[in-house]
Computed example of a mutant assay.
Amino acid sequence: MKTQWLLFWLLVFAVLVAVFALLNVEPVTIRYGFGTVQTSLVLVILLSALFGGVLVGLYGIIRQYVLERDLREARKALASLEAERDALQEEVGALRARLEQKEAAERGAEASYDPEGALPRDP
């Protein structure tokens, strides 16, 4: 829907420029640094609008290319960070397992330790 509205407003703008150009049909002299040209004001207006549209289009294409490149780089960085996170989570899991084994061994050693000697225990 957004694209349709954009096209609609572009068409309205193009029609307004064309009407404005047709209302200004006098001949004009354009002076360049190396010469002059006598032409219709309609042609000057339409060519100026076309040139402006081309510049805006080129800017949009370049901007889109830069944004897509940045997005690709961000996705690569994200994938790298996710791989690092997964590796760290595996390392944390392994360390927790080692800690639990060590704690279980210490509990087992404490349970079998008799500070007063080899006294029988009451069941």
Score class of each variant (00 low, 15 high):
39 T>F: 02
96 R>T: 09
32 Y>H: 15
62 I>K: 14
108 G>N: 06
27 P>Y: 08
25 V>K: 13
114 D>Q: 14
82 E>S: 07
45 I>L: 00
107 R>V: 00
104 A>P: 03
50 L>Q: 02
106 E>M: 15
71 L>Q: 10
57 G>V: 11
97 A>R: 15
105 A>M: 09
96 R>I: 10
87 A>R: 08
24 N>T: 02
42 V>N: 01
24 N>A: 01
115 P>C: 00
92 V>I: 15
113 Y>N: 05
31 R>A: 12
20 F>G: 11
110 E>N: 12
49 A>K: 01
95 L>A: 12
80 S>L: 15
119 L>M: 08
119 L>G: 06
55 L>I: 04
94 A>C: 09
32 Y>G: 11
31 R>E: 12
50 L>F: 10
59 Y>N: 08
118 A>D: 15
68 E>R: 13
75 R>V: 12
45 I>W: 01
40 S>I: 00
94 A>Y: 11
96 R>W: 11
119 L>E: 09
23 L>P: 04
31 R>G: 10
27 P>N: 13
20 F>E: 12
26 E>C: 03
77 A>G: 08
61 I>Q: 13
88 L>G: 02
25 V>S: 14
19 V>H: 04
71 L>I: 06
47 L>C: 06
119 L>F: 08
108 G>I: 00
74 A>E: 04
18 A>F: 15
15 V>H: 01
66 V>Y: 12
17 V>P: 02
16 L>N: 08
38 Q>L: 15
17 V>D: 01
119 L>Q: 08
36 T>H: 05
83 A>D: 05
111 A>Y: 02
64 Q>T: 12
121 R>M: 10
36 T>F: 04
20 F>P: 05
33 G>S: 09
64 Q>G: 08
19 V>L: 10
113 Y>S: 05
37 V>G: 03
105 A>Q: 15
68 E>F: 08
42 V>S: 01
93 G>T: 11
39 T>D: 00
73 E>Y: 06
77 A>M: 12
30 I>A: 00
69 R>N: 06
50 L>S: 05
73 E>V: 06
57 G>W: 10
93 G>L: 11
36 T>D: 04
42 V>E: 01
26 E>K: 07
26 E>I: 04
69 R>E: 11
34 F>Q: 07
103 E>W: 09
73 E>R: 14
110 E>M: 09
114 D>V: 09
52 G>R: 03
76 K>C: 11
24 N>Y: 02
